[in-house]
Design a protein around this nucleic acid. Sequence first.
DNA 1: CTCTATAATGATTATCATTTTCATATTATA
DNA 2: TATAATATGAAAATGATAATCATTATAGAG
Lengths: 146, 146
Amino acid sequence: MKKAAELFNDFITKKNLRMTPQRALILDIFLKKQGHISAEELYDLVKKRDPSIGQATVYRMLKLLSESGIARAVEFGDGVARYESHIGREHHDHLICTECNKEVEVVDEDIEKLQERLARKHGFKLTGHKMYLYGICRQCQRKKGG
Amino acid sequence: MKKAAELFNDFITKKNLRMTPQRALILDIFLKKQGHISAEELYDLVKKRDPSIGQATVYRMLKLLSESGIARAVEFGDGVARYESHIGREHHDHLICTECNKEVEVVDEDIEKLQERLARKHGFKLTGHKMYLYGICRQCQRKKGG
DNA sequence: CTCTATAATGATTATCATTTTCATATTATA
DNA sequence: TATAATATGAAAATGATAATCATTATAGAG
């Protein structure tokens, strides 16, 4: 938690921006929330603690969090941007059940290595990736079978 | 080309929908366009051939194309949905240069196998995936270096 | 071929997430 | 504190997509 707050302060300073109570509160709430969160969900949480904060501020803050590398966007293809904390968390990809929308965070070192290799083969220097695996989870397979 | 048109006809029939000149034209243009295309880009192309076609029809058609398995959505995270032909084309993933937005279609059989394995490990039956690799292409690396 | 029920069309409006605007308030600093 | 720049919140604007609805076109029955 502390590390992220420091990182954000560094970012703010470097960019000649300013720390404000609103930003501090939004950062705090964002970091405490695990998993992914949309701007609106975050706004709802923020409002509970300070109803005077506007949602434009939340949107603006999410942009700053992304730029600073503290948050990163996760696309689910439903037209809503979601963000997750990118600091103090392991990198992971997403395994999603297309029946019940359950989501599991996964990592596979071998895949990561092959991604590097694949990019290099095409002359690219890999800087990041997003991988979404879609399938049917155990429970939903049972449901369908029964 | 022919195969996709037949597939769409089968889909249309099975769903008790109807083939129309508009749908035929949009399908034709969609199939001829390689790479990915947004609803608006497709609409612009369609308008050139028949200015009377409305964009609602294009949106509706893209939905049908997705449902029928002829098109599939590609997310680029810029808030615009793009589609690409999914028939008569090899499956592929995307390698994108974050500097110049150049995009290369890639496939790696080893990665595909590991994805299967990873999903299975979590009890999922894999039905599909999306993988986006982000990096800096050769030219842009040079540019930065020079 | 004609009739008929139903689906498709296109123009328009609505929706929903996100961004911008702008007047006001707050901040860091001199 | 005074000042210049940035941040805020409310509201309006935007942009992509979806829904509405009156009209038109289609497939199949006869």
